[in-house]
């Protein structure tokens, strides 16, 4: 291809005998010429820092990254993995937060996407409304819910009062804080699941639906045995994308409960815990250990999910 020397109608030099050597070189090496800058950026800003974090996790560095530190091997890992006061509860909260939020988001998201599937008058406005929580700044969203859930002046308790339920502590309660932050996550991110599932539904072909209808399948049967199996790959993608972000939730937790996830660490997930270790306590060695374990948990759950998906494809 590249050796065609026709000049008719050309606006730039064709690759021929007259082509300057550097142009030919650039064209021959365009694959890496195009990709390299981004790859170098990623390597410099991500791969090297990550390797460094891996190294720090094997030392007792604290106070300052520059401070004298000794290599302690896997001691940090043994300490962290046997820490039932902060680490394991944080693992539990991260898992609870992610699993419960995802469950609600997928079920509600599926219901809303099905309602929006077929065109109807006013659909455009519903779609606009769905987009709003999704693009709103998470920190601002946290502050907004903080006012609504305020035990004394918040609208939430006001509304509960109208239906005869007593005031709740919401974010301020030791046991209600985590469920309340899960609610906020569901409010903000169910729309994301709706949009993904809606894109999936729109790309489905009509024929299986028609066939099932002619065979006399009920609406529920059509959903259960036709739509859902065809939509499963998209559902997995939604769970994967949303799951990664839910595991790493930080902004809303920090905005509503502040450092350490509140005074009882009631919303302290792994990300909040690692942030606190690094920037409130400067325990760089231990925090790096937590981060490496956190990273492995994220990779592990992604791998489990995609493996299950491949299994389902067979």
């Amino acid at each position: 291809m590249a050796t065609i020397t026709t000049t008719k109608g050309s606006r730039s030099a064709p690759t021929g005998p007259d082509t300057p050597a550097w142009v030919r070189w650039a064209n021959d090496h365009r694959k890496w010429l195009f990709a390299a800058p981004a790859m170098v950026f990623v390597a410099a800003l991500i791969a090297i820092p990550l390797a460094w974090t891996g190294y720090l996790s094997l030392t007792d560095t604290e106070g300052s990254v520059r401070a004298e530190s000794t290599f302690v091997g896997v001691q940090n890992y043994l300490d962290v993995l046997s820490d039932t006061e902060r680490f394991w509860p944080a693992v539990g909260r991260t898992a609870t937060f992610t699993v419960v939020a995802l469950l609600f988001e997928v079920v509600l998201g599926m219901a809303i996407a099905l309602l929006l599937w077929r065109p109807f008058k006013g659909q455009k406005w519903v779609r606009v409304a769905i987009l709003m929580p999704l693009v709103a700044t998470p920190v601002a969203v946290g502050m907004m819910w903080r006012l609504i859930f305020d035990p004394n002046i918040g609208m939430a308790n006001q509304i509960l009062g109208w239906v005869g339920i007593g005031p709740q502590p919401w974010l301020a309660g030791q046991y209600t804080a985590l469920p309340t932050t899960i609610f906020i996550d569901v409010w903000q991110w169910t729309p994301m699941v709706v949009l993904i599932l809606l894109a999936g539904l729109t790309s489905l072909s009509e024929e299986p639906q028609e066939a099932a209808r002619i065979d006399g399948a009920s609406t529920w049967q059509r959903f259960r045995h036709v739509t859902l199996p065809l939509l499963m790959p998209t559902v997995t993608v939604a769970i994967l994308l949303r799951g990664i972000d839910a595991l790493k939730t930080f902004d809303v937790l920090y905005a509503t409960k502040g450092r350490g996830g509140g005074s009882f660490h009631e919303v302290e997930t792994l990300n909040v815990y690692a942030y606190g270790l690094s920037f409130d306590y400067n325990e760089y060695g231990v925090s790096s250990t937590v981060l490496i374990l956190f990273f492995l948990i994220i990779i592990g759950s992604m791998w489990a999910l995609t493996a299950r998906r491949k299994e389902a494809k067979r």
Partner: peptide, 12 residues
Amino acid sequence: ARVIPGVSLLVP
């Protein structure tokens, strides 16, 4: 980069 927790890069 979409997967890595941001905190793990912030220290370095």
